[in-house]
Simulated assay, not measured.
Amino acid sequence: MDADELAAWLRLIETPGVGRATARRLLAAHGSPQAAARRASPEAPEHLAALVDTTQAWLARDAAHHVVALGDADYPRALLESPDPPLLLYAAGRLELLNAPALAIVGSRHASAQGRENARAFAAHLGAGGLAIVSGLALGIDAAAHEGALGTRGGTIAVVGTGLDQVYPRRHAALAGRIAAEGLIVGEFALGTPPLPENFPRRNRIIAALARGTLVVEATLQSGSLITARLAADAGREVFAIPGSIHAPQSKGCHALLKQGAKLVETAQDVLEELGTPAPAEAAPVEAPIEAPDKPDPLLDAMGHDPIGLDELIARTGTGAAELSARLLELELAGRVERLPGQRFQRIARA
């Protein structure tokens, strides 16, 4: 779009007191962003000129930077069908992914090692099946899902709650760079928008709307992932959940979804079959809690799959504390066991 049209869209969106619903009504009534913006406010916001200049400079910096307005040919059809489509989307990367078949994978920021492994493995398999994996670039499950999908046929889309010139959390700068180069980063917030808490629930509606379904890997009962799942269900999209230990707080959100009618999945193939997507011929089915068929380990067998304390392990195995601690450290370094707070441990099944 040219500078005048960009300025009109930004003026409409940035005018104080004009919400998304009002802006859409003005567009419908007046036919163009220029006319709608003039009706919204006789005078442009003070910071508008600087924001237009910043946005134009960002667009000129990289051919993979885009601004997509409601009604543009590249605007995602799935968002048009949602009740609250963004007026403007900022995008960096492969714009064609906006209209690719997609699945959202979301979950706890404070995920267990098992949860991250499951998210990574499911994303890799589903991405190989041609689904773009949508998530929110957050710590924990989101990051693992993006990592698993990178390099697959489907690719990955990160929906962010900041301006696209920001990276949050900062430790994901390298991951965000890879996604922009190989996949797509997208958001509705103007450049310069910092990570404000109220913007992250708002971006969840875009995650849910872009995807044909939402898979929740791990979530507490207070997790924002449940907001995404509810939005997906309200929009008539499929909701999937991976069950976990009845003793793990990170499983309680998934179990609540299952009680409410979410589809229980144990393998990525379960998701592909439900969506009517054929499995990739080159990949074997991925199962969430399956142990690799290598050397049996009596200690792992004694642990089971629930979190367990050191004292209980001593009672189960009859092994002394010093010897058991040394063996647990070996398994931890090998990526077979995760150390939890309170001297508790959990076996990690290889997905």
Rank of each mutant, 00 (worst) to 15 (best):
E147F: 01
R61S: 15
A145Y: 05
G309E: 08
V52I: 11
F122G: 08
L97V: 05
S251F: 07
R327P: 00
I246R: 14
T156M: 01
A288N: 07
G127P: 09
R202S: 03
L272R: 08
A321M: 15
L300C: 08
E147W: 00
A138Q: 10
P85A: 04
G151D: 01
A21R: 15
L191H: 06
A232M: 06
Q343E: 14
E117P: 00
D2Y: 11
Y90C: 06
A124C: 00
L257N: 11
T317Q: 00
G107I: 12
L210I: 09
S112T: 15
R94G: 02
A181E: 12
N99A: 10
A57N: 13
Q260C: 00
I242S: 01
P298K: 09
I185P: 00
N199H: 15
E96Q: 14
E81C: 02
A180H: 02
A158I: 05
S41E: 06
R212T: 01
G107T: 12
Q346R: 15
P194W: 10
G19A: 03
L313H: 11
I207K: 03
L264E: 07
D2E: 15
V67K: 11
S108N: 05
D4L: 12
P76I: 09
Q343R: 14
A119L: 09
N204T: 08
I141T: 09
R171G: 15
G130A: 05
A3R: 15
R212Y: 02
L12R: 07
N204Q: 11
E96R: 14
V134M: 00
D234M: 06
A35C: 03
A121M: 02
S225D: 05
D165A: 13
V134F: 01
A121R: 14
V68M: 09
L59R: 07
A149T: 01
A73S: 11
R178H: 03
I227W: 04
E96L: 01
A208T: 05
M303E: 02
A138C: 11
V18D: 06
A73K: 13
L139V: 06
L333C: 08
V286E: 03
A235L: 08
R24P: 01
G107C: 11
Q269S: 15
A60P: 00
E287Q: 10
P289T: 12
